[in-house]
């Protein structure tokens, strides 16, 4: 969409990148230094087997709790993005309901060890086999593949921050009441993303590569919702009584 976006000075873009990056680091849940301290320790075989032998509903509950924890950090991130809190409350909810899991999936690559194809989960690094009890191996494989592909882009923290903000401010979400306002914010964020990519001397296709991730993210989030409703059809009582209320509100 080559339409003329709002003219924004380089200084303004620098400032925007800095504020979004600061908000990201303040709300990223895990600082890379903390992860280094865990020395990237992965689960022992016995620990893997104990996850695998958990009843399906217990593993689902554990993952729902972890996702819900992460969502709350993404909400704090959104609240710090310039202009987000000036949107109407309906649109704040629409953008977070649709975008929080996408940001979590992008943030996941900060916690991902691509040599061992494992993600930081519940205190150590877990391979896809840890999640076998969930009964949705194909979705887990796709999530791990996505994390691997994000890792291979080797995005810096400020690039991750601005890309996360760009994802959250998606003007094409349905049910938005002030679509134009969101569009303007997203265009400015896209300029900031182009700016930080150029500043970090990324090759030309970098922005397009990032934008191509959006469809993969949307598909993963749709599959998560479908997998959850299939699980709930079998275990309605477990979801009603043991799943975090915020998780049910967003994804139920």
């Amino acid at each position: 969409d080559g339409d003329m976006s709002p003219s924004v000075s380089t200084a303004e873009l620098d400032h925007l990148v800095q504020t979004i990056s600061k908000s990201h680091l303040e709300t990223c849940q895990y600082l890379t230094e903390e992860l280094q301290q865990t020395s990237w320790q992965s689960f022992l075989q016995a620990e893997v087997e104990s996850y695998q032998s958990k009843p399906r509903e217990l593993m689902w509950q554990l993952c729902a709790v972890k996702i819900t924890e992460a969502v709350q950090y993404v909400v704090e991130f959104a609240k710090r993005i310039d202009g987000f809190m000036e949107l109407c409350q309906n649109d704040q909810i629409v953008l977070l309901k649709a975008g929080s899991l996408e940001v979590i999936l992008v943030r996941m690559c900060r916690l991902f060890d691509s040599q061992n194809n494992s993600v930081y989960f519940d205190g150590k690094f877990a391979g896809p086999d840890v999640f076998r009890a969930l009964g949705c191996d194909d979705l887990i494989t796709s999530v791990f593949d996505f994390a691997n592909s994000m890792c291979s882009l080797r995005l810096s923290e400020d690039e991750l921050a601005v890309f996360s903000a760009f994802l959250l401010l998606s003007a094409d979400r349905s049910w938005l009441q002030e679509k134009l306002k969101v569009e303007k914010l997203q265009q400015k964020t896209q300029l900031a993303l182009q700016h930080v990519l150029q500043k970090n001397r990324r090759e030309d296709g970098a922005l397009n590569k990032l934008r191509s991730k959006v469809s993969a993210l949307r598909s993963l989030c749709t599959r998560h919702t479908e997998t959850l409703s299939a699980f709930r059809a079998v275990h309605p009582d477990v979801v009603r009584t043991h799943f975090p209320p915020l998780y049910k509100e967003l994804f139920g």
Binding site: Q89, N90, K97, P245, E249
Partner: peptide
């Protein structure tokens, strides 16, 4: 939408922690 997302709405209202 707000009444269907009371918790999210509350999180948005809380002062930035």
């Amino acid at each position: 939408l707000k009444d269907k997302h009371k918790i999210l709405h509350q999180l948005l209202q809380n002062s930035t922690s």
